[in-house]
Amino acid sequence: MNVQKNKIALSERDVEKSVGQLLRFGVVTSSIIVLIGGILYLFSIGSQPRPDYDIFKGEQASLVTFKGIFMGIFTMNPMAIIQFGALLLIMTPIMRIIFSLTAFAIEKDRLYVIITLIVLSIILVSTFGGLNI
């Protein structure tokens, strides 16, 4: 009985550790991409005066859609590379939820599979629902 209890506790701890590793991986990968884009950005226009951030103009179309950002990466546009890194950063917590969902499913924790699915659908509806992608 005692041995079995330890086994369950161990597997839960493993899941938690993997979630931590996933978060770290997402953050490290996205920050490396942001750093690469940032260095290219500074080399290309670093000496120019600061853009007029005082007035809100919004971003150009190529930096606000998934399609625009992906197209920009292929032409090595530094701004698009930074934006892609930002997008990866946003995806990191979403990936964490998908990961937790799998972990709860393996543990056969039905209640938490449902709870996780609710959270995931709220985020996906907000991300893809009725928006111009």
């Binding site: 884009g37 950005y41 853009p51 951030y53 103009k57 919004g58 971003e59 930096l63 606000v64 859609t65 530094p78 701004m79 698009a80 930074i82 934006q83 930002a86 997008l87 946003i90 928006l131 111009n132 992608i133």
Partner: peptide, 9 residues
């Protein structure tokens, strides 16, 4: 992001 609030710079 889609509203253009995120500036790479």
């Amino acid at each position: 992001l889609q509203r253009g609030y995120m500036d790479p710079g």
